[in-house]
């Protein structure tokens, strides 16, 4: 029973984190129709930038003030949004009309660049760092013998709030309508007076900001940050990415559902089958979904016109 509840709690907390990252993949795919391989590295950068700002404000030790968390969160999100917009401008925009394979390779290049530049001594370095407890590490209440930690609650609430905000933005605002229009047909959207480049930039900004929030929350949950090119990050990004694909890439709600599904498969697989094989379960789910329904659980199939 204890294991079950603990696993369930972890599933929901991790699922929320994956969802934040998966949303970035899905948003970018929606407007540009390509998988931004470098997105998972924005997640990493988000965690590291948060850590760097903590250092800047002298909050690396314990007992940082209560207002530290929102400040760091906003700063990390803003930095990563700027980074995302910059990457799109420099690396992806020149390839807007290029074959998709070229864009994919470029994205891999950007991913490698972020990872390896992050490792440089004057950037984040090659050492992992402990993440200061911006959210006090205490248990809120007991549920069936399991400590429900404040940090888990924070993650779920914050992620939930961000997702609701995104939903409102995409379906309830002028920018959101423009995003959906670009997603539907870029050419027609631009004929209707929508500034496609601006919308693409905004999309990259939003996606990257969400990933940064995810990165920060992840670092808080595990209270340490692995070095920028560590395989943990790569695998984490992959899981979020798989979540987006499984949910049907390009579909906002599908990404959240996919994230919860992936977190569920991973956590329950690790708890009840084999802890070492968690990635195996995730990829098996991915391959099965792609082979049975390549457009994902909630995606629409795209047919090439002859």
């Amino acid at each position: 029973m204890t294991t079950l509840v603990q696993t369930l709690v972890d599933t929901i907390a991790l699922g929320s984190l994956y969802a934040l990252t998966a949303l970035g993949y899905t948003l970018v795919y929606g407007v540009l129709r390509f998988i931004n391989f470098a997105h998972s590295d924005i997640f990493t950068v988000g965690a590291w930038v948060a850590w760097s700002f903590c250092g800047l404000f002298g909050w690396l030790g314990t007992g940082s003030p209560i207002f530290a968390m929102p400040i760091i969160l906003v700063l990390a999100m803003a930095t990563c949004a700027a980074l995302g917009i910059l990457i799109e401008l420099l690396a992806y925009r020149p390839l807007r009309r290029a074959p998709r394979l070229n864009v994919l390779i470029t994205a891999i290049g950007v991913s490698l660049l972020l990872q390896n530049c992050g490792q440089l001594d004057w950037v984040f370095g090659r050492q992992g760092q402990p993440m200061p407890a911006l959210v006090e590490d205490r248990s809120l209440f007991m549920l069936a013998g399991v400590n429900i930690r404040l940090v888990d609650i924070t993650i779920v609430l914050l992620a939930g709030a961000l997702m609701v905000a995104l939903e409102r933005l995409v379906y309830g605002s002028k920018v959101g309508r423009a995003m959906r229009a670009v997603s539907f047909d870029e050419r027609v959207a631009s004929l209707m007076g929508i500034n496609v480049n601006r919308i693409v930039s905004i999309t990259f900004g939003i996606g990257s900001a969400l990933a940064a929030a995810g990165g920060l929350l992840f670092a808080l949950k595990y209270s340490n940050i692995k070095q920028p090119a560590d395989t943990t990050w790569v695998l984490l990004g992959l899981r979020a990415f798989v979540a987006a694909v499984v949910g049907g890439i390009g579909n906002v709600r599908g990404a959240v559902a996919g994230a919860l599904l992936i977190a569920f498969v991973e956590q329950f697989g690790a708890a009840y089958l084999s802890a070492n094989m968690r990635d195996l379960f995730v990829f098996v789910v991915l391959i099965v979904v792609l082979l049975v329904k390549p457009s994902g659980l909630f995606g629409k199939a795209v047919v090439e016109k002859v």
Binding site: A91, I105, T106, G109, S111, L112, N116, L120
Partner: peptide, 8 residues
């Protein structure tokens, strides 16, 4: 980093 840049 150089490889990555070259690739892009």
């Amino acid at each position: 980093p150089l490889y990555a840049l070259a690739l892009i």
